[in-house]
Amino acid sequence: MGFKRKKDSQDLGSEFDDDEKVKKMKKTVEKEKKEILPSMIKNKEKRSEVHAKLKIQKKLEKRKKIKARDAAEKRALELGEEPLPREIPRTIENTREHDETVCKAFDEELTAWNDADEFSSIYKCERTPKILFTTSRFNSTRGPAFISELCDVFPNSHYYKRGTYDLKKIVEYAKNKDFTSLIVVHTNRREPDALLIIGLPDGPTAHFKLSKLVLRKDIKNHGNPTKHDPELILNNFTTRLGLRVGRLIGSLLPQNPDLLGRRVVTFHNQRDFIFFRHHRYIYESKETKEATGSKKKEAKMIARLQECGPRFTMKLISLQHGTFDTKSGEYEWVHKPDMDTSRRRFFL
């Protein structure tokens, strides 16, 4: 560097330029320094220091940006112009990798398949859903409590003690007794950790991982559900596999909900995790004061929610064709580690 400077300084006419050049060079050097990521620094103290600095800087920049945007919006409003449309944040969901199995509406083959699949008789109201709940061989505390709450959620459900029966025997028994689904809650270390939903008599078998279970009594301000048939909300089941899982879940509940009960069961799919929630809702006319100062009161309808019943998250591990059969069953879908090629790839 020094050599270059000397060389430049020989050029007498451009001392000012020369200074600027030096500054520029310094800047570039600084830039290069900046490009050193904190993760490359080996000294921990130094690294954390640099990292904290970077973080503060980023935070400040962000705050500045938001302030500027808000100011611009305000100005636009004052001037009566249209404010610039807000940018849509890029999330993992809306940058999801393209999946050709996402179902399109009015697909002839899809409707034909839906008319013919295992649940079609339930959706056509030819059979009413009837569920058999059972557990793994050993269960205690949280398992039975969870099942008793699930029995409140799903109407026409029956709990049978597992005993020492084989699952295949239980499937046979449930088939003979005209059950339409069989749910096995698997417990490990006194905590429910897996859910097996089997469609009967020849429906698919879905194996879910269960996590984040919160029982009713641990939910603050929880309500108690009534015996009415609940409504069902299935969110974001878009692909072919998702649709199939959605139909399997939908076949657990009666198709004509009792709207008087105002009870909703939600299965919300987000990034392949299925979130279960159970609510009661109520429409209320809330009286609000007008902000302008006039004392006229206006009745406004609002909906209020009260959560009741368990809260948990499921993740699909495998979907098997036919009833439970680990030895000779054919899998429609199995999660394999080599499928996780990207964070933006989802299957449901």
């Binding site: 064709h321 054919e330 899998y331 429609e332 879908w333 199995v334 999660h335 394999k336 080599d338 499928m339 090629t341």
Partner: peptide, 8 residues
């Protein structure tokens, strides 16, 4: 044959 094949 590796190719994210997931069904039977």
């Amino acid at each position: 044959f590796m190719g994210q094949c997931s069904g039977s």
